[in-house]
Computed example of a mutant assay.
Amino acid sequence: MNRFDFWQALRTWGLLLAGTALYAFGLQYFILPNLLMEGGVTGVAVLLNYALGWPVSISSLAINLPLFALGWRQLGKGAMLYTFAGTVLLSAFLWIMERLVEGGWLVPFRSEHDFILVVLYAGVTLGIGLGLVFRAGGTTGGVDIIARIVHRMRGWSMGQIILSMDVVVLGISLLFIPKEKVLYTIVSVFIASKVIDFIQEGAYAAKAFTIVCAEPERLARRITLALDRGVTLMPAVGAFSGENKQIVYCVVGRFEIGKLKSLVRQHDRRAFIVISDVHDVLGEGFRDE
């Protein structure tokens, strides 16, 4: 491993560790003590904690492992490496936080009246945590794995799949917690999504990559295989050299920005990359209308 690869790996794992630790802290410090909710698989684990008293760390890992095995078969080990890392690290930090709470080392923040303060800090904390994980090119598993598999098999929008599953989880939570807490949770999720966008270097749901690099056709194939995104090769001419070139153009979702950056740098460290804000995206993998 050369120096560039070493620092790249160190940065990636540092972001994964910091992100999962912060997310676990926010869940134990703000969400659970105030009977709030989360979306996705973590939300299911929180529901099991409220209904049956099961630890969130064990429940989330137990639910995620079968999903990870399915994702490994359907998506390939390359696409699942950092997802597996994020899943295991999150469960590990949740277990550590649970031990700290039980031992009295961490006193959760409980509020009887000022829930706005709770949801603000919960949204910011969870958003920063997930944003760091996504920036490292990882995820915390769960719904993201299901969304990617369904998208590949059916072509449905990943964003719509994730949103639909979050709505189902929040709907089921009405059976166990007051509806006011569910409404507060929606505010927290909204704040977290905006913070994730900010951490991911933009306020929009997608980014356009324009890349000038060596062996563009090879890079296009790698992007297609690793991210399951369409890639366009556009002919161009270098103004100074007069050489004919091909420019790689690709639009990706916010969760894939870090992955694509890393992929391009691995392919060609001297690649010239322009990342543009995308205000709206219609088409396969995004919105249909």
Rank of each mutant, 00 (worst) to 15 (best):
T125N: 04
A136D: 09
V143I: 11
I145L: 03
G129Y: 14
I162S: 07
H151L: 03
M158H: 07
I145R: 01
R152Y: 14
S157C: 04
I128V: 14
H151G: 06
R154M: 15
I162D: 03
Q160G: 02
G129R: 11
R135N: 10
F134W: 12
T139R: 04
T125C: 12
T139P: 04
L163D: 04
R154H: 15
Q160Y: 08
L130N: 10
L163N: 06
I161K: 04
V143G: 02
S164T: 15
T139C: 05
G127V: 11
G138P: 03
G142F: 09
I162Q: 05
I128R: 04
R148A: 03
D144Y: 01
S157K: 12
G141K: 04
R154E: 05
D166S: 06
A147C: 08
I128L: 15
G159L: 10
R154A: 11
G159C: 06
T140V: 15
L126V: 09
V133D: 06
M153I: 14
I161P: 00
T139F: 12
L126E: 09
L126P: 00
L130R: 13
M165Q: 08
G155E: 06
V150H: 05
R135F: 15
D144F: 01
S157W: 11
M153L: 11
G142S: 10
G129I: 10
M165L: 15
M165P: 00
W156E: 14
T125G: 07
I161S: 12
R152I: 06
G137P: 00
L132S: 09
I128K: 02
I146A: 07
G137H: 12
I145W: 01
R148T: 01
M153N: 11
A147H: 01
R154K: 15
R152M: 12
V133A: 09
W156H: 08
R152H: 14
D166I: 02
M165W: 05
T140M: 08
A136T: 08
L130V: 13
S164Y: 13
I145C: 02
R148N: 03
S157F: 08
R154I: 05
G137I: 03
A147S: 14
G138H: 07
D166H: 10
I145H: 01
R152C: 08
A147I: 01
G138D: 04
R135W: 13
I128Q: 00
G131V: 03
T140P: 07
D166V: 02
L126W: 03
G141V: 04
T140L: 12
G131T: 08
M158R: 08
S164D: 11
G142K: 07
G141E: 05
G129S: 11
V143W: 05
I162M: 13
M153G: 00
L130A: 12
S164F: 15
V150R: 14
G138Y: 06
R154F: 13
V143T: 15
G127Q: 04
G137V: 05
I149N: 00
M165T: 03
L132C: 10
I145N: 01
L130D: 03
L130M: 13
A136K: 13
A136Y: 14
G141C: 13
L132E: 11
R148W: 01
I162R: 13
S157P: 05
A147W: 01
G138V: 03
G155D: 05
L163G: 00
W156I: 08
I149E: 01
I145S: 01
T139I: 03
G131F: 04
G137F: 06
T139S: 15
T125H: 09
